[in-house]
């Protein structure tokens, strides 16, 4: 039999407790190496769409809020076009779509200021509800966790990804609560009661 000459993906290792040295050195106070940290904002002035703020925390299985979590977000523009490598065309030039978000070193709270993304098609052509993809790393997390933020005030029932969640009550863990005009709350629970849905996508 012939051989299949595929390589294996590099195995993951935890980002560890010092991930900020590498990914957000200026926010840590290690200034002078890079002029600014990458992923400061997923939007630039003039971005089209509804400006929104999402605030949240990341909690472990013992109920403790993580102070060392690092989250990256990736989203489409208000029309549902991604700003990088999207075969359907060019996105809003004022939406870069990607942000690097760190939990506050004291409170553990994180904040994302962005615009609400549009709907994006699933591979079979049905539309996914507006969402922001998250990738979460920290000490104690051996492989980055994938999850998504959906929005309470959008039509989520027809989203083909949310429909794949067998335990229906868990869908609520992916839906940001509206706390005011353009204001949302999204708390992530890593383990136990109310555990956030994580994906293998």
């Amino acid at each position: 039999m012939q051989r299949l000459d595929y390589l294996k993906e590099s195995p993951s290792q935890t980002a560890g407790p010092y991930v900020h040295i590498g990914l957000t050195p200026n926010k840590l106070g290690n200034t002078g190496i890079y002029p600014q940290d990458l992923g400061e904002s997923p939007i630039q002035p003039g971005a089209q769409g509804e400006a929104i703020t999402i605030i949240g925390t990341v909690r472990d299985g013992a109920g403790m809020i993580l102070r060392d979590a690092l989250i990256e977000s990736w989203q489409a523009d208000a029309r549902g076009i991604y700003p990088g490598n999207d075969p359907r065309g060019a996105a809003d030039p004022n939406v870069s779509g990607w942000a690097r978000i760190i939990a506050n070193f004291d409170s553990g709270e994180w904040t994302l200021n962005t615009v609400k993304p549009g709907r994006v098609p699933f591979p079979d052509g049905r539309m996914m509800a507006p969402h922001i993809s998250l990738w979460l790393v920290a000490r104690g997390i051996n492989l980055g966790l994938q999850t998504r933020i959906y929005f309470e005030d959008e039509e989520n029932d027809s989203c083909p990804v949310l429909q794949r969640i067998e335990h229906r009550e868990r869908v609520q863990t992916l839906i940001a609560r509206k706390t005011g005009p353009g204001q949302y709350r999204f708390d992530i629970v890593l383990q136990g009661a109310g555990e956030t849905v994580f994906f293998d996508l």
């Binding site: 935890t14 013992a62 591979p123 104690g140 383990q191 994906f199």
Partner: peptide
């Protein structure tokens, strides 16, 4: 992974929801 203690309270216990990648995973920042 109990040998690495911090993972014990930071590991999801529920199975991951698995499906093929979508445009949200196939696109990325440049």
């Amino acid at each position: 992974t109990p040998g690495y203690k911090t993972s014990m309270t930071r590991a999801p216990f529920r199975p991951l929801v698995a499906l093929g990648s979508t445009l949200s995973e196939e696109t990325g920042p440049a």
